[in-house]
Design a protein around this nucleic acid. Structure first.
Lengths: 131, 131
DNA sequence: CATTTATTCAACCAAATGGTTGACAACCTA
DNA sequence: TAGGTTGTCAACCATTTGGTTGAATAAATG
């Protein structure tokens, strides 16, 4: 399903590549221009750009000998969606748990079972979270 | 600055670890429980959990021999902020460029210079984008 | 045509990664 | 105390990664 996300996250795990993305967000640039600031060979930067390209974060367009690199913003949505989905799920679960704990605090009897607990270790989770 | 992001992105680059996060978003679980579905040793999963822990995505709490693993949602904000920042920058730049192109389309003379073009390859970028 | 410029390809290397198996530690339970 | 669970540590292995240098390609320019 998400072979794409493998490459995207892996691409952004490297600080040099994140810096490239940061700079490309401001302006397109050629490989040579991108390489200048770093204390490493042009070939190394070319490789980094290729990694970003394979991840779909960037596209290259040829202009004579130069390759102009442009940031592609769409892929960011893929990441954001993945992240936000699970962040929301986790937060929603915490709120459910807090609600349950609040009820237990009142009279000790759980009333309306909000969403049925699917996982076996949920109770111990609640116990942990109460501390 | 962002040594943390290195670990977070690297952690999520692995499909098994993303699946762990997905499952932990629904419910806390012990290492053993987490290991069950996969065709790999418990030790391997333990390592994966350690990677998630080092990235700050997850915390372990000891409960007898068991380690209950919980997802920590705060780190997600760090990622979202980073991503959204550059996505917005890129999109804003595209809109500026589209505006400039629209003006050029009318009379061929750029009027109010929106934001000054900082990078040398901006014009060629505009040319490329026009095609 | 010869040269310079911009980039990539190829081979190589050290270090990190993702997995394995075996031993060990810690804890419950009979 | 002995034995079963649960998880980690250690050593090992194959592959990937991030860098290097040297050569090759492609296009502008003298």
């Amino acid at each position: 399903m998400s072979d794409r996300l493998d490459h995207v996250f892996a691409a952004l795990a490297d600080p040099t590549r994140r810096d490239l993305v940061a700079r490309l967000a401001r302006a397109d640039a050629t490989v040579g221009e991108l390489a200048e600031p770093y204390d490493m060979s042009v070939q190394a930067v070319s490789k980094h750009v290729s990694v970003l390209e394979r991840a779909g974060l960037v596209t290259k367009s040829k202009d004579a000998q130069r390759r102009t690199v442009r940031l592609e913003a769409e892929v960011f949505d893929l990441m954001t969606k993945w992240i936000e989905r699970y962040r929301r799920e986790a937060e929603a679960r915490y709120q459910r748990l807090d609600a349950v704990l609040a009820e237990l605090d009142e009279d000790g009897t759980p009333k309306s079972p909000t969403t049925p607990t699917t996982h076996s270790s949920e109770e111990s989770a609640a116990k942990e979270r109460a501390s």
